[in-house]
Amino acid sequence: MDKRTTHFGYQDVPVEEKAARVADVFHSVASRYDLMNDLMSFGVHRLWKRITLERAGVRPGHKVLDIAGGTGDLALKFSRLVGPEGKVVLADINASMLGVGRDKLIDHGVGGNVEFVQANAECLPFPDNTFDCITIAFGLRNVTDKDKALASMARILKPGGRLLVLEFSKPSNPMLTKAYDEYSFRLLPKMGELVAGDSESYRYLAESIRMHPDQETLKGMMESAGLERVEYTNLTGGIVALHRGIKL
């Protein structure tokens, strides 16, 4: 048995247990995930995702993969950008989140250019050189082996294809960091308890953000995975960062 450990928030857990624990978190919050995103970010997550869409450079006919796509915010927009000749794959390891995303896209009248796949980011079930663009928004920090996942994403990108990682990161201003910590560890769990009936899952989410690699570290990880011209943009003072790399 694998004796290695990894972090689950601030806890050390056996490597083989982390995926199941993360799954329990998202099974718990799936039905209220969109509402909590709006409340937690004061709606700013929509701006962060809009910037991601603009930087993705997706055009009609493209094939796009949205990993950890959850409730389908990006996939919904991508489906309109790629048009009937394109294809969008909404992938998530969590069946509850995938179900919420499928229902949302059906409610919005999305047609046959979207496919739903339950998949682990570390071993994506697609051939080499398949996608013009891959996005993962607020999902990489929950992956057990991030290097393995980034390599898997790079493998299935077409030459010239782009990977965009939108994720919580490290604020650049010490005063902002202090206020952000206060919000994350005091207000966020209380909000989770009131709205979603689950304070522990939102405490984990706050801890998982703190354990995620900072901007420069993640840039280096993407380069090690084989991506070129990797750059990042800090959003909202570095609370969130958008990394972008190209497969040459």
Rank of each mutant, 00 (worst) to 15 (best):
T6A: 03
V15Q: 00
E16D: 15
E17R: 12
A20E: 12
D24Q: 15
H27A: 05
A30K: 12
A30G: 03
A30S: 13
M40A: 13
S41D: 10
F42G: 15
G43M: 01
R50H: 13
I51Y: 07
T52C: 08
T52K: 06
E54M: 13
E54T: 09
R55P: 00
R55N: 12
R59C: 04
K63S: 05
G69Y: 01
G70C: 00
T71G: 10
T71Q: 03
G72R: 08
F78G: 01
S79Y: 03
V82E: 07
K87L: 14
V89G: 00
A91R: 04
D92I: 09
D92T: 11
I93L: 14
K104R: 15
L105I: 05
G109W: 04
G111Y: 00
G111P: 00
V117E: 05
V117C: 13
L124V: 00
P127V: 11
N129M: 05
I134F: 02
I136P: 03
A137Y: 06
F138C: 04
F138R: 01
G139V: 04
L140K: 05
L140I: 12
R141S: 01
T144N: 05
A151W: 01
A154D: 02
K158F: 11
R162A: 08
P171C: 00
N173C: 07
N173Q: 10
P174N: 09
M175G: 11
L176S: 10
A179F: 05
A179N: 10
Y180K: 03
D181T: 13
D181V: 02
R186I: 04
L187T: 12
S199P: 15
E200N: 11
E200G: 02
R203K: 15
Y204F: 13
Y204K: 08
Y204E: 03
A206S: 15
E207N: 07
E207A: 10
E207T: 07
R210E: 13
H212G: 00
H212F: 15
D214I: 12
Q215R: 14
K219N: 02
G220V: 06
M222D: 10
S224W: 04
S224H: 15
V230I: 10
N234F: 07
T236C: 01
I239L: 11
L242M: 13
H243W: 10
I246S: 13
